[in-house]
Write a protein that binds this DNA or RNA. Structure first.
Lengths: 346, 346
DNA sequence: CGCCGCGATGTTATCGCTAACACTTGGCCC
DNA sequence: GGGCCAAGTGTTAGCGATAACATCGCGGCG
C-alpha cells in the first residue's frame, strides 16, 4: 500500500468553506491525487480495489471536479456558444432546443447570447461575448443579412457555423431549404387551378424572407404565371393582418402564399373581417408549421420545418468543424408541405 | 522604465498556436504581468501613460483574458444556470430571454439545461449538470409539481430560485399571480351576465394549471355561481380542440375560461366547426396573451403575463440570494386582463 | 540469473490568472 | 532633514486539475 495517509484515519476535508478537491479525495482514499484523477477520467490503469476505494471517497465527500481547473490545463472548456436573434420565436427556440439536447448528450454545455436587434454590431458583440466565455465553438442562429455581414468578419480561431443564414463562403451554413419550401407551396396553389399566387413576404433584410420570395417568384415564372406585387410584413401577426387588409381590396386575388404562419394568422383574420371566406373565396398557405397552425380558422396549409432535426444536425456540423473536417459550405434540410383546409375544396 | 523588455523591440507572442496570455501582453508593453492585470480589472493604480501602453499591447495581440484561469483563482465562474422545462413554449422562452438579458448586462453568462419531461429525476439531473459547470447560481423555470419535489432536495450550497413553481419553503419563488389572473378573467366573464363560467384547465400536475383552476373555482363560489365540471387539456391546441368538441354538446354553456391561449385557439376552432359563434353564442377568455392572441378569430380576451419583466426580476432575486440576502419566499407579479372581441358585445 | 516490459502508482511541472505583500520614488509635514 | 504615506510597480505563491515522466514490483524469457 503506497502513500502516507493511513486509510484508517482519513483526512477529511473541512466541513466548512470550500468544495473538496482531488487532494481531499486522495487523502480520504489513501492514494495520490493522480490516482483519483485516473479514476475520474478512466485513463491509465487502476486496480479494481483501489478504484472502489476512490469511488467511495468521491461519494462520501460529494466531490465534483473543478471545471475551471480542468479547462485551464486541458485548454478545453466543454462549452459551446449559441447566438440567437430573438430566441422567443418558435423557430429559433426549437432550433436552440435541438442543439442543446444534442450537445448535452455529447457532454457539452451550451451558453447563450441573445440579440434583440439584427444589427451587424450587436451580432459581433454577441460572438465576442461568447469568446470571452472561452467557448470551443459557436453557432449563430440569425438568418439575416446583418448576420451574414457580421460573419464575414468572424474570428477565424474559433469554429463557427451559421444556421439558416449567409451566403458567406467563410462560414459553413446549415438551413432548411427555404427556396424549395416556397416552391412546393406555390406549386401546390397553382395546381389548384389559380391563375397566379400572391405573396406576403417577410422583411427584406431576412435571408429566409428573400429565399421564400425567390422560390415563389421563380416558380410563378417557370409556370408562366403573372408575378404579382409583393406585400411585405415583419413576421408578426399584426403585419400579416395589415397585409390582409391591403389584399382584400385586390380584385382577382384567389391564392396567397404567406411567408410565415404568424402573418398567415393575421391575414386570415383580415380576410374574415373583410368578408372573404377561406378556402371558399381564397386559398392561403403559410410557412413553418407552428404547432397551432392546424387549429387556425381554417386549419392552415403550410411548409413544415423540422427545427429539432435542424438543431441536431447543426450540432453535428459544429463538432465536425471543431475536429477540423467538414469544409462543405452549405447544408440543406428539406422541408415538407402539410396540406390542410386553407387550401381545401371550396 | 522598469522591466527587461525594451519597448522598441517587443517580444511578440508566436503567431502560431496558443492564445496570448497576460505575460505576452506584459512583454510587449514592457511591464510586469501584474500591471496588465490591474489595467484589465481596473484595480490598484496605474499611471495613465502605462495604461495606454498596456491597452495598445492588448489591442495589438487581440488579447482576451482566460476565463478558466480567472475562475480558478477567484472561485467565481461568472456563469448562471437556467433549467427550463420545454423552452420552446412562448412563456419559458420569453422568461429565459428576460433573464439572459439582465444577466448579460450584469456581466454574467447563462448556461441552459433543458428538460423535456417534467420528472423529478430529470430536473435533478439538469441541476446536477449545471453544478458540474460550476455555475454560481441556478434558476429553475418549471412550474410543475415534479419541479417542486425536486427542489426540496436541491443542493444547499448553490443559490437557487424557482420561477412560477413550488410551495417549497426552502427555495424562493417568483411567479406571475396565476390565481389573481384567473380571478380577473372569471369576474370579467361573470360581469357580462353569465350564470356561470366553464373552465378548460391545464394538466393537473402543473402548478400554474392548479392555481388558475383554483382562482376560477373560488371566484365562482364567491359569487355564488355554479361550479361546473372541469375539462382538462395538456396546454396544446389539439387538447383545446378536443375540449371544445366536448363542450359544444353542453347545453347552457355561454362562457368559457381557458387556461392558456393555445388551448383557446383549439377551442375556438372546435366551436366554429360545431356551429357556435364567438362572441355571439359563447364568450371565451384565455391566459398568457401570446403575440398571436389579438389575431385569433375572434381576437381573444386573455390575461397578459409580462414574461420579460418576470425574467428580469428573477435575475434580480437570484443575485440577491447570491449576496446572501433576500429570504422572502414568494414574490408575485401581477398580471393584466386584456379585453378583446371574444368577450365582446353580441 | 539478470534484464526487459508492463501494470499500478507516485512526483513534479505547468496552465493563466489574482491575492498578498514587497519595493521604489517623491512630496509633504513637523 | 528625517520619516511617513501614497502612488506606481514588481515578485511570489498558490488556485485544482492534467501531462509527462519516474518509480516499484513482478513475471517471463534469453
Amino acid at each position: 500500500m503506497a502513500g502516507t495517509a493511513r486509510p484508517g484515519e482519513p483526512e477529511r476535508a473541512a466541513t466548512s468553506g470550500r468544495q473538496p478537491s482531488l487532494t481531499d479525495v486522495a487523502g480520504l482514499a489513501g492514494v495520490s491525487h493522480m490516482t483519483v484523477s485516473r479514476v475520474i477520467n478512466g485513463t491509465g490503469s487502476v486496480k479494481a480495489e483501489t478504484r472502489a476505494r476512490v469511488t467511495a471517497a468521491i461519494e462520501e465527500l460529494d466531490y465534483r471536479p473543478n471545471s475551471a481547473a480542468r479547462a485551464l490545463v486541458t485548454g478545453r472548456s466543454g462549452t459551446l456558444g449559441v447566438v440567437a436573434l430573438d430566441s422567443t420565436l418558435y423557430g429559433p427556440a426549437s432550433t436552440l432546443y435541438g442543439i442543446e439536447n444534442a450537445a448535452r448528450e455529447a457532454g457539452y454545455a451550451i451558453t447563450i447570447s441573445s440579440v434583440s436587434r439584427p444589427q451587424r454590431s450587436s451580432i459581433s458583440d454577441a460572438v465576442e461575448n461568447l469568446r470571452r466565455q472561452a467557448v470551443e465553438g459557436i453557432v449563430v442562429i440569425a438568418p439575416h443579412v446583418a448576420a451574414g455581414r457580421a460573419l464575414e468578419y468572424a474570428p477565424r480561431d474559433v469554429p463557427l457555423v451559421a444556421v439558416g443564414g449567409g451566403e458567406t463562403a467563410s462560414v459553413p451554413v446549415i438551413a432548411v431549404d427555404q427556396y424549395d419550401g416556397a416552391r412546393r407551396a406555390t406549386e401546390h396553389l397553382l395546381a389548384l387551378g389559380h391563375r397566379t399566387v400572391w405573396h406576403v413576404a417577410g422583411p427584406g433584410d431576412w435571408l429566409e424572407a428573400r429565399d421564400r420570395e425567390r422560390g415563389w417568384r421563380e416558380t410563378l415564372e417557370r409556370h408562366g404565371a403573372e408575378v404579382t406585387r409583393v406585400v411585405r410584413g415583419d413576421w408578426s401577426s399584426r403585419s400579416g393582418y395589415e397585409a390582409g387588409r391591403s389584399l382584400v381590396a385586390e380584385r382577382d386575388m384567389s391564392a396567397v402564399f404567406v411567408a410565415n404562419d404568424q402573418m398567415a394568422l393575421g391575414l386570415l383574420r383580415a380576410f374574415t373581417e373583410g368578408g372573404l371566406t377561406v378556402p371558399k373565396d381564397v386559398h392561403v398557405a403559410g410557412f413553418d408549421d407552428v404547432p397551432e397552425a392546424a387549429y387556425f380558422s381554417p386549419p392552415l396549409t403550410t411548409v413544415r420545418q423540422d427545427f429539432i432535426e435542424l438543431g441536431r444536425r447543426t450540432f453535428g456540423l459544429l463538432i465536425a468543424r471543431m475536429d477540423g473536417g467538414e469544409h462543405q459550405v452549405r447544408h440543406l434540410v428539406t422541408p415538407e408541405l402539410i396540406v390542410r383546409e386553407s387550401t381545401g375544396p371550396r
